[in-house]
């Protein structure tokens, strides 16, 4: 059965801590998720492009040291480039979004900064799906999706206008109004909050289903 399902590579780097629920969400959404160790990628044992769909889940990769997501973005820079060239749909959740941001996979001049409160914030949040070309939210435009937030560096800032996919429809955990953005071609989606939580959350599953469908 799993042979018919699309292969979803879920990146694991030391510090990743949401890989299990992310894999469970992809599995529920009809995918065949596999954990991909960064160490194995760096040692040439596996390739990031050997999948139909790629996800960088949440956590504190590299311990969040230096800056959130920077270690993954630095060490895997060439691999991310090949992934983008292969037009494989990519999802970055929370710390995964931060890593994709530092790998510069979104609009130039846009980045993530510290929450206005200057502290981590964990709370339930409502998100409005905006009209965009994002493949991960296709058909969901206008809907309100509920899933929790848990981050300390999640405010979308910058001089450029990002490709906005999600906005906050309730109190913002970080002080900004943008909850998710996508790349110019709509195939790379980054969001700070957690559609994979709790297990089986129907609102979040819609996003995972879309990604698999588009792969």
């Amino acid at each position: 059965m799993t042979g018919l399902r699309k292969r979803v590579a879920v990146l694991y780097t030391p510090g990743t801590n949401c890989e299990e629920e992310t894999m469970a969400a992809f599995r529920l959404a009809g995918g065949n998720p596999q954990l991909l160790f960064m160490n194995d990628i760096l040692k040439g044992r596996v390739r990031m492009t050997d999948c139909d769909c790629f996800c960088v889940p949440g956590g504190f990769s590299g311990g969040d040291h230096i800056a959130t997501g920077i270690l993954v973005a630095t060490l895997l820079a060439d691999h991310f480039r090949r992934l983008v060239e292969a037009r494989i749909p990519i999802l970055g959740i929370c710390n995964g979004f931060q890593a994709l941001d530092r790998a510069r996979l979104f609009t130039d001049g846009v980045t993530l900064s510290r929450n206005d409160s200057e502290v981590f914030c964990s709370m339930p949040v409502k998100h409005r799906v905006e009209t965009s070309n994002c493949i991960w939210t296709k058909g969901l435009e206008g809907q309100i999706l509920r899933f929790p937030s848990a981050h300390g560096y999640g405010k979308v800032v910058g001089e450029s206008r990002p490709n906005v996919v999600l906005t906050y429809a309730s109190e913002s955990p970080n002080g900004g109004f943008i909850a998710g953005i996508c790349s110019d071609n709509g195939r790379i989606f980054g969001l700070m909050d957690h559609p994979e939580r709790p297990y089986g959350n129907p609102d979040g599953l819609e996003i995972f289903r879309n990604g698999i469908r588009a792969a």
Binding site: C18, A24, A25, F120, S122, N201
Partner: peptide, 13 residues
């Protein structure tokens, strides 16, 4: 309380 991640692992009921 909100400074602590209470939903990670996806198992919080």
């Amino acid at each position: 309380t909100r400074r602590y991640d209470s939903t990670v692992q996806g198992i919080t009921y």
